[in-house]
């Protein structure tokens, strides 16, 4: 939708992946872009198949392997930008930017075994760094308003609330200059 609102100021630079760090549980984690490998795809299927249903938000990730694969086929399309947080050869988290007109919709997931260890912050910064490098101008997301931890994370990153009239908050971030800014 073109009537979404975004902050006027462009966000600070985010680090582009690969990004290596040690999480708060002393695990070595690396964030890398997903580049279409089958092994990466299967690791994500495994992560989402074991995903705690209590951590689902607004219907995603879907339940059951068949629906997980259908959903991944859509969001791992080459038009989309994806990064995975790897702990060894296990996918610990995944974040994605899916094109929506002149902007991208963002979502981020961290498996329950890897939550509250600082991985989400690195993961979203890595995704936004990847997006910035690829020339993405505007990013939006929705989040359930009661999900305070997520809302706090998005605010810390620089997202601003653009619509608070529904069950879900809508938030926006500007990563790069708009290519058609002159027309506005």
């Amino acid at each position: 939708m073109s009537d979404r609102r975004y902050p006027e100021a462009i966000a600070d630079a985010f680090p582009a992946p690969p990004i290596e760090f040690t999480d708060r549980e002393d695990r070595a984690v690396e964030i890398r872009p997903y580049e279409g490998s089958e092994a990466g795809y299967e690791s994500l299927v495994e992560m989402y198949d074991a995903f705690d249903p209590a951590d689902r938000a607004q219907g995603i990730p879907p339940g059951g392997e068949t629906r997980i694969r259908e959903w991944l086929d859509a969001i791992l399309d080459e038009e989309c930008l994806n990064v995975i947080a790897w702990c060894g050869d296990e996918a610990a988290g995944h974040a994605t930017l899916v094109p929506d007109g002149d902007a991208y919709e963002l979502a981020i997931f961290v498996h329950q075994d890897y939550q509250r260890a600082g991985i989400g912050t690195h993961l979203i910064r890595g995704l936004l760094g990847h997006g910035q490098a690829e020339g993405v101008a505007k990013v939006w997301l929705t989040v359930e308003r009661w999900n305070r931890a997520a809302v706090a994370l998005y605010k810390k990153i620089g997202f601003e609330t653009s619509n608070a009239e529904s069950f879900e908050l809508e938030m926006g971030l500007r990563l790069n200059e708009d290519p058609d800014a002159d027309e506005e």
């Binding site: 607004q58 979502a107 529904s166």
Partner: peptide, 13 residues
């Protein structure tokens, strides 16, 4: 949404 997220509109709410 393009992501597959469901949002409930203001009428339904």
């Amino acid at each position: 949404s393009p992501m597959g997220k469901i949002t409930i509109g203001s009428i339904a709410e």
